[in-house]
Design a protein around this nucleic acid. Structure first.
Lengths: 236, 236
DNA sequence: AATGAGGAGATTGTATCCACCCTGCTAGGG
DNA sequence: CCCTAGCAGGGTGGATACAATCTCCTCATT
C-alpha cells in the first residue's frame, strides 16, 4: 500500500501489522477494533493507530462508523463475485503482457512452484488436523504463480491494483478451498499448468483467456464458500 | 474514496477539498503541501489534515516524504500509459456488462450528453481565451458517458476502482486535449458514438473492444501531451 | 576559494488532553 | 406492564503540546 515513495515507517508498518492480524484471521470478523487496545498492544499512542485504521478503511478492509469505532468488514458473497470479476480482467491483462516478457528460466521456476504447491496441498490434506487452520505462510505460495506474472507484466499500476485486491479479503479462504476439496485442488493445478504452457509459447491471448476463466472459476468457488458459511466467522 | 460505509465526514470532505485543489491545478505540481498552512486555511487543526493527506497518498496523488512534507506527484508519461492500459481493461469490462443492462432511455440520454459535449468543446475552441484554462465543471461532462456506463455495469468494486483512477491525475489534461485539438475532438466524439451504438444493440463484446481501443487511444494522447510538456507545470 | 562541521529555524511525527457523540441502563409516568 | 426521558460510562474526533528530524545558512579550516 505504498504507491511510490515510502511514507513514514511507523504508521505503514502498523497498518501492515493490523492488516496481517485481520487477513490471518487472528482478529475475527465483526470484532470491533478499539484504538486504545491497539495502541496499548503496540506500545504507542492512539494517533498513529487512528491513521493506520483510516488507511485500512481506504482499502475496504474495515468499516469505520462515525463515533462507534472500527470493525472488520465481513464480505458478502456478491461482493466477492464483483471483486473476482474485476480481478479476472486484471490478471488476464497481466498474463497477456507477461507472455511476451517471461524468460524461460522464470517459466521453469513457475512450473516448479506450481508442482510444489500441488504437493503441499496434497500433503496437508493427508494430515486432516492442519487442514482447517492452513498456515498462511505455507499456502502463501499458492500465489507464487500469480505474483510472478504480475512482476513480469511490468506495469506498476497493474501490480499495485492486484496487490490491493489480494489484501481486501482474508486470504485463508482460497487456501482452505485448495486443501479441503480434491476437485478444486486438481482443477487449480491443471489451470495453472495450462496457463504456464500458454505463457511458455508466448501466446498472450490464450494465456489471458485461460487466466480470466481460471480467476472467475476460483471466484465462484470462493463466493460459494462464503455463501455456505454465511453469518459465520471466517476463521477457517 | 468511501468504500462502503461513510467514515467521519470531516476528514473525507477535507480530502475531497484538497484533492480538488490538486486536480483542478490550483496547487501547482511539485509544490509542497504544508500541514500547518492547510490547517489554517481550513480553520482546523493539523490532525485531520494529516489524515486527509495520508488518504490522498494512498491513492497515489501526492508523495509523502518522511520528515520533509507532502508534494503533489508529477506523473511521468510511462505511468500515464500504464494507468490507461489498466483503465482500458476496466472500462471494457464495464462496457461489456453495461451492454445488457442499459435501458433505451439511458442510452438516449447518453447520446444527448455526448452531442452536448461535442458542441461545448467546439464553442470553447471558438473562444480561444478560455481554451487554456478549461473550467473543470463544464468539461467534467466529458466523463458523463463513462460514469453512465460504470453505473450501468452494476459492479461496485469496478466503479470504485475506475473512480480512483480518475482521481489519480489532474483531470484538466484530457480536457485541454479535447479543446485544443480538432482531430482529438472529432475522434473522441466518433468513438463515443460507435460505443453507444454497440451498447444500443446490446453487443457487449463489440462495446468492450471499442471501449478498450478508445481508452488506449486517449491514454496515448494524454501520455504524448505529458511528453511534450515534460518538466512543466500542469496548469493547462 | 572550496569544503565540511555546527547550529538555528522550520516542519513533521507522536503523545496527551478535552469535548462531543453514541449506547445502555435506570427511573418515572401512562 | 410497557414506553420514554434522563443520566452515566465508554469511545472516538479534534486540538494542543512536545520531541525528533531535516534543511539551510554560517563560519571556520584547509
Amino acid at each position: 500500500m505504498s504507491p511510490t515513495p515510502s511514507s513514514t515507517a511507523l504508521v505503514d508498518e502498523l497498518a501492515d501489522r493490523i492488516r496481517e492480524m485481520i487477513l490471518s484471521g487472528e482478529v475475527p470478523v465483526g470484532r470491533p477494533l478499539r484504538q486504545a487496545d491497539l495502541a496499548e498492544q503496540f506500545g504507542i499512542s492512539r494517533t498513529p493507530v487512528r491513521e493506520a485504521l483510516r488507511q485500512l478503511h481506504s482499502t475496504g478492509l474495515i468499516e469505520l462508523h462515525p463515533h462507534r469505532g472500527a470493525i472488520v468488514r465481513v464480505p458478502v458473497p456478491w461482493e466477492v463475485r464483483e471483486t473476482y470479476e474485476v480481478r479476472a480482467e486484471l490478471e488476464a491483462l497481466a498474463a497477456r503482457r507477461a507472455a511476451t516478457r517471461l524468460s524461460s528460466e522464470t517459466i521453469s521456476r513457475m512450473r516448479e512452484a506450481n508442482d510444489a504447491l500441488y504437493a503441499l496441498t496434497m500433503s496437508m490434506a493427508d494430515a486432516p488436523d492442519s487442514a482447517g487452520a492452513a498456515p498462511s505462510g505455507g499456502v502463501a505460495n499458492e500465489y507464487a504463480l500469480h505474483p510472478a506474472i504480475h512482476e513480469a507484466a511490468e506495469n506498476a499500476r497493474l501490480t499495485r491494483m492486484l496487490h490491493d485486491i489480494n489484501l481486501s479479503y482474508p486470504r485463508n479462504v482460497p487456501a482452505v478451498l485448495l486443501v479441503e476439496n480434491v476437485r478444486h485442488r486438481e482443477e487449480n493445478h491443471h489451470d495453472h499448468v495450462d496457463i504456464i504452457d500458454a505463457l511458455a509459447e508466448g501466446d498472450g491471448d490464450r494465456a489471458a483467456t485461460l487466466m480470466r476463466a481460471h480467476v472467475l472459476k476460483t471466484g465462484d468457488q470462493v463466493a460459494r464458500w462464503y455463501e455456505r458459511h454465511s453469518d459465520t466467522t471466517v476463521r477457517g
